[in-house]
Amino acid sequence: MSRRHATIFSSLLLLIGLVCTLLVVRVPYSELSPGPTVNTLGKHGGDPVLSIEGRRTYPTSGHLNMTTVRVTSADYQMSLPEALYGWFRDDSSVVPHETLYPDGKTAEEAEQENAEEFTQSQESAKAAALKELGIEVPTRTVVAAVVKDGPAEGTLRAGDIVKAVDGEPVKQPADVAKLVTEHKPGEEVVFTVVPVKQAEAAEKAGQDPTASPTKEVTVRTVAAEEDNRAIVGIQAGSAHTFPFRIDIKLADVGGPSAGLMFSLAIVDKLSRPDLTGGAFVAGTGTINADGEVGPIGGVQMKTVAARRAGATHFLTPEANCPSALGNAPDGLTLVKVGSLDDALKALEALREDRPADIPRCTAD
């Protein structure tokens, strides 16, 4: 073999080795891409997404689509070529793995957290919608989550109604942390609670769950790692007692970002006029019980998904507007909203053909 041929052969082997190495090298990144969209006014998998019993409902038209993002799983390791390919695509986004799965969360932990956030989002969406319609929604403080391996695990349960801490009545979730941190680490805290099973049984029987019999639970505090304050390893939150039944059925979806669209669907079914006037509207955004809309992740992928599905207007949380504008599909109007009331006013302007009154996302 001549020197020239040997050089070519060696270079070819080196190139093949380099390509093989690139194919097996894994990088700490994850990918987001447009997911399915679902009309909250319609059906999914053959069943209504939203069903209401015990209250008069009205016909609806058009679309109020919630949007989703597909993400690579927590245990998936991207190859370098996959990451490079994703970076150059308009319909995907490559981000550091820890952005989606902080603190080394496993796939099971991420799925559980998403399911819990989705459930809480539904509760907040229902409360916000009914409040918007002037319907009273009693609220109670509950154990929203129990930290795994924390002091309260096995003693307090998610859904327990917290009536008092150390005999001091609890009026809102913030009271729980305030009363616990009055202790020193290692001291005991006494919770007066209505156990979740009793609360659920009372609700099913049409009774006030907060009036159910209580029990006292004692938990020993530990020191928080970040600032040494006393904690018991729970997160307090709010639960609501609804005057009639509202069911949201949507499998294989997690996280809190559909809250706004669920609220709008509930308002649409319980009131007149028809919110969309037949238009195809999609959107995203978290919502709290007071109707405040919050930002979400992956908004650029959601706008792509919305436009592919046929949407002409996209309800965009105000804080997400700058990011959404960076990859806005042609033919999709990005509507800026900061609250449920903002969204309703924007839909009214759309329905009445007043485009100048629809607040749009701007770069500033």
Rank of each mutant, 00 (worst) to 15 (best):
86 G>P: 07
40 T>N: 09
82 E>L: 08
362 T>H: 15
2 S>L: 04
138 P>G: 01
243 P>Q: 04
217 V>C: 07
56 R>G: 02
207 Q>L: 15
293 V>M: 09
183 H>D: 04
132 E>L: 03
3 R>K: 05
145 A>H: 13
170 V>P: 14
326 G>M: 12
47 D>F: 05
109 E>T: 06
332 L>F: 04
5 H>I: 14
152 A>L: 08
253 V>A: 08
180 V>P: 14
184 K>M: 12
237 G>V: 03
226 E>N: 15
227 D>R: 04
350 L>C: 06
85 Y>N: 11
338 G>T: 13
209 P>N: 02
291 G>V: 11
201 A>G: 06
284 T>A: 01
141 T>S: 13
57 T>M: 10
147 V>K: 13
74 A>C: 09
213 P>H: 08
147 V>Q: 15
159 G>E: 05
180 V>C: 09
66 M>Y: 01
256 P>V: 11
185 P>W: 07
228 N>Q: 14
137 V>S: 07
61 S>C: 00
318 E>R: 15
277 G>F: 09
250 L>T: 05
5 H>Y: 13
162 V>W: 05
269 K>Y: 05
283 G>Q: 07
87 W>R: 11
311 A>F: 02
149 D>A: 06
301 M>S: 10
119 T>G: 10
71 V>F: 03
25 V>L: 11
8 I>F: 11
257 S>I: 07
183 H>I: 03
268 D>I: 03
296 I>A: 03
100 L>E: 00
165 V>R: 08
226 E>D: 15
144 A>M: 10
8 I>P: 04
202 A>P: 07
32 L>M: 15
301 M>V: 08
261 M>Q: 11
97 H>G: 05
318 E>V: 11
6 A>M: 11
200 E>V: 09
210 T>V: 14
281 V>Y: 09
234 I>L: 12
38 V>H: 04
337 V>N: 06
282 A>C: 14
248 I>G: 07
315 L>P: 12
86 G>E: 01
195 P>D: 05
14 L>T: 15
318 E>W: 08
133 L>G: 10
202 A>H: 04
5 H>C: 04
104 G>A: 04
313 H>I: 00
19 V>Y: 06
99 T>L: 03
299 V>E: 00
37 T>K: 02
169 P>I: 05
356 A>M: 10
159 G>L: 08
211 A>D: 10
197 K>E: 15
122 Q>W: 10
68 T>C: 07
348 E>M: 09
62 G>V: 09
321 C>A: 03
112 Q>L: 13
92 S>H: 13
291 G>S: 07
115 A>S: 10
323 S>C: 00
53 E>Y: 03
101 Y>E: 05
27 V>T: 10
241 T>K: 00
100 L>P: 02
31 E>S: 14
261 M>R: 07
1 M>F: 05
270 L>T: 11
78 M>C: 00
